[in-house]
Design a binder for these strands. Structure first.
Lengths: 206, 206, 206, 206
DNA sequence: GATGAATGAGAATTCATTCAT
DNA sequence: CATGAATGAATTCTCATTCAT
């Protein structure tokens, strides 16, 4: 058996490198040479791990998606208390970590920006991921609706709002980081998230 | 006298074409040939109006910004009633028009994607525009704070929130239009916007 | 009858402009727009006078040749005294005027440099001119050989030498004008020219 | 390890190809495709060795200069006898080799043609070379002036003359090769060179 | 497996030339 | 006749991909 571990390590390094380079230059703007350089590898060797530039993008997006989605979903799922509180706590968590995600998000934004409309595998992958996230969150909300007796609460709309806000904040964190920091300290984001959900407002504020 | 064509008309047509092609393919992915084709023009002729691809992007961004910003600012400024109501009404207006902006916004995502990079003229243009928008909105909010006696209301944070939400929705309208439509009918966006601002909540709902 | 004079004036202006632009940029480097601009004319109008860029070059070269050759030939022909003296006087005349010719020469050098080898009409024109000049000079020298009884004097070789020296000096006047000025004051050029021709040396020095 | 080709060999081959193509078409007239074709290489590969067309010209000029200058300087320096004789011998050597240099020189005329222009690296390179050549020759002449007691001999002017003549002959060899051959057999060039320098004339003739 | 030189299709840009006005 | 907008072929340069070593 050849060294399987090495292959995985190399592959990861390439994805990290790709993430950085895509963030910096966009998909079309990035070159395989840049990715190879950053990964400390040769251009030719790169093709041992990814069969093409498109494949590299796909692999990168996949890795990012897996990492990002599990984490936050776990958090939301595992915390206790009424939905409103949980959402508020989740919101805070996001605010605190958003800058750490900035590079990944910047990279994916580049990718969306360039491939948003096409019928590429990437578009499908990202679309599927988006829908999966929404579905998961919605299930969670629906459960809360039942357990907390929230009547007439449009769970899907709430979920979509929250995701839109997060997208908007990711953009802001990149475009205007100082403003973003100012904003994240104002406590307005958790408040707003909580405001979407019926229930006692007091405990929600950070 | 040479072929008489209104240069402004031609320029506008090129911007429209660029808007479409950038939206479809991303900035790097778009070719001058595509833009020229769509505008019913030759590659070479394009350079009579824009000195380079970068310049074309800049001109396009400028045009979009001018169109988008004035319109919504006017609306917000001209409407009557307490701030909370005005914001709610504004929110509805945006929701109703956001799909009409989808192409423009899709194209603008390309532009956002460029933002991370450097000291390009485009970065400056967009940064300036963003700050101007925030400032204008903030002034408006500050006036309301005084006239309505809203104490301790963090106007800038509110403004930033609203802009982030709009950004997020623009993205959503492009990525997942069906979801977006569902969402826009739920009345949650105006409610959320209004929830950011202290004041009577009843009249805000659509 | 249309105004024939105007046409000639315009044509001359274009040739002057072309001379300048070719000198500055070389033939391939020069653009019709530059020539038109310098002549205070439109690109399109230029084609009323010259059917193509090649034709413009040809016309320009022709004009230059006519101007340059007649002048110096006349001088040589009209002056009195033994050949050696006449050549020395001619040499001085050239030195004095060489800087005035620099632009023309620079222009033609550009052209030679770029088109020297091809079988173009220009090459033929220049070649024909060169040979014509040599022939004229040689005839003159031959006459002097007879009238002055210079035996065994290789007139053609002498003529070729003189022309080579002049070419070399034209180059030098452009490449290193200060050196050239220094040189032209040294009196070495007339001395050298005269040295080629048998005869009394005393009167030759300036 | 990649395809093993000596980079230096490849580079030299490209310079040879460029030399030929520039000579044939002029700098502006030459295309990278032509150079690549002649070198038996692809357009793209060329850019592994030279970063741009300008850089290729620069590299070519550098190579030519190095080759041309050392050779003739060595000859002049190493020969014996009074200066006049050495110069005459040098002149003969040049005549004999000038046609071999014709291609190189033809290519270099492209370079000279660029000289009028600006502060380009090429201009600096050539200017420096020209001045260096003149200085070296002058030093040699100065030494002879001392050792041979030649009084009042304007060495710099003599050097400049010789260089001008060589330039002129190079041009002639290209424009009118048959004439040039005729001329070179006449023995007039060494005689003329020698004539510039005081001293016994007898032994100088070939 | 890894390397990087070589390939060549493709993109931005320029410019001689045409032609509607 | 003059104009200058429009055309499109040609050119420089880039970069994903291949492949000899």
């Amino acid at each position: 058996m050849p060294r399987v571990v090495d292959r995985e390590v190399r592959r990861s390094a390439l994805i990290q490198a790709a993430l950085f380079v895509f963030a910096e230059n966009g998909y079309h703007g990035a070159t395989m040479q840049q990715v190879a350089d950053r990964a400390g590898m040769s251009k030719g060797g790169l093709y041992e791990y990814f069969s093409s530039k498109d494949d590299l993008l796909l692999g990168t997006a996949e890795a990012v998606i897996n990492e990002m989605s599990e984490e936050s979903m776990q958090l939301l799922r595992s915390s206790e208390g009424p939905l409103r509180q949980r959402v508020a706590r989740h919101a805070e968590y996001i605010l605190e970590n958003i800058e750490g995600w900035a590079e990944v998000s910047q990279s994916m934004r580049q990718v969306w920006a360039e491939l948003g409309n096409a019928e590429s595998p990437l578009t499908k992958l990202l679309g599927a991921h988006y829908r999966r996230s929404v579905d998961q969150l919605e299930t969670l909300f629906d459960e809360a609706v039942v357990s907390e007796g929230l009547d007439n609460f449009p769970t899907r709309a709430a979920v979509l709002t929250i995701m839109a806000v997060i997208d908007g904040l990711l953009i802001q964190a990149v475009i205007a980081p100082e403003e973003f920091r100012l904003y994240s300290q104002s406590g307005m984001f958790p408040r707003m998230c909580a405001a979407l959900i019926p229930g006692p407002i007091d405990e929600a504020a950070s």
